[in-house]
């Protein structure tokens, strides 16, 4: 099983579209494909494939810190340890946890010498499964609306999809990520075989391509470029990034009105372009 990621840094470059086009290509070749939508803040692969999310296959939980005031000695170690700036403590008073900033990493309860911080489980999202075709499964991770830190939802969605993959044994496991290079994207890329970085020939595309290629290098996952809308803009813009990170353009996709129309109608299933 090959674990491929479709990412790219910039938003709106066509990550979801390309991920689905890959799935279409592989299924057409008779391969078994499991596509996992990791853009959990606004998953849309199911919309592009004309699917509906019905009953969730699994709920996603994360553990957030809760203070046991009886045990807390107000030492302040938790506030000093928190990298998300999610713990505040007035010297000599009890720490305050700011949930909106918490990434549920668990460092505070590991470090607390008094064991005064207790992990408390809360639902943070859901996972859905659609069997789009005989040899094409779609798994959608969806974060609870208003959740600030969605990295844990991606991690849990990935765990779920790896479990499912053991059962259905796909040839390709495709991860479609959110834009950016933050926790939810890192969680998706970790442990994968290859990242297809989708970009466009614009200054913004080039800037964000640098960031995602840098991330791939740091995570030690090889990267290839898919240049979308390749005939628009100026291709020279992205060449320095290719040179700097020694990566190649795997595929150039010209602008296609037919594709945009199919996209807007949610009819990307069976659409062939790659």
């Amino acid at each position: 099983m090959k674990k491929l990621v479709v990412s790219g840094g910039k938003g709106g470059v066509g990550k979801s579209t390309i991920a689905i086009l890959f799935a279409n290509k592989f299924t057409k070749e008779g391969k078994k494909v499991l596509l996992c939508d990791c853009d959990v803040e606004c998953p849309n692969d199911y919309l592009l494939l004309g699917q509906k999310l019905k009953k969730s296959a699994e709920k996603v939980y994360a553990e957030f810190p809760k203070l046991n005031k009886k045990k807390c000695k107000k030492c302040g170690l938790c506030a000093k340890t928190c990298r998300s700036n999610a713990i505040f403590q007035t010297p000599g008073k009890y720490p305050i946890f700011i949930k909106d900033l918490c990434s549920a990493c668990g460092a505070c309860w590991i470090i607390c010498p008094q064991k005064a911080i207790e992990p408390q489980t809360e639902e943070i999202g859901q996972v859905f499964v659609n069997r789009v075709k005989n040899n094409f499964w779609l798994v959608t991770g969806s974060a609870k609306a208003g959740l600030e830190e969605t990295g844990p939802v991606v991690t849990q969605t990935k765990k779920f999809v790896l479990k499912l993959a053991k059962k259905i044994k796909p040839d390709f496991l495709l991860f479609d990520t959110a834009p950016g290079t933050h926790c939810p994207v890192i969680s998706a890329i970790l442990d994968c075989d290859l990242v297809y970085c989708v970009t466009e020939p614009t200054p913004m595309g080039a800037y964000d391509l640098n960031l995602i290629l840098d991330l791939c290098q740091k995570l030690k996952v090889p990267a290839k470029i898919i240049l979308n809308q390749a005939d628009l803009g100026d291709k020279r813009k992205i060449l320095p990034a290719l040179k700097k990170f020694k990566v190649k353009i795997e595929k150039e996709i010209p602008y296609s009105k037919r594709l945009v129309e199919a996209y807007s109608k949610g009819q990307l299933l069976n659409f062939e372009l790659l």
């Binding site: 506030a79 998300s84 700036n85 999610a86 713990i87 505040f88 403590q89 007035t90 010297p91 700011i98 900033l101 933050h182």
Partner: peptide, 15 residues
């Protein structure tokens, strides 16, 4: 800071 700058700043002031 990526996020939570306000909390961290408040912590500095409180300290």
């Amino acid at each position: 800071a990526f996020r939570g700058a306000g909390i961290a700043a408040a912590q500095t002031v409180a300290n």
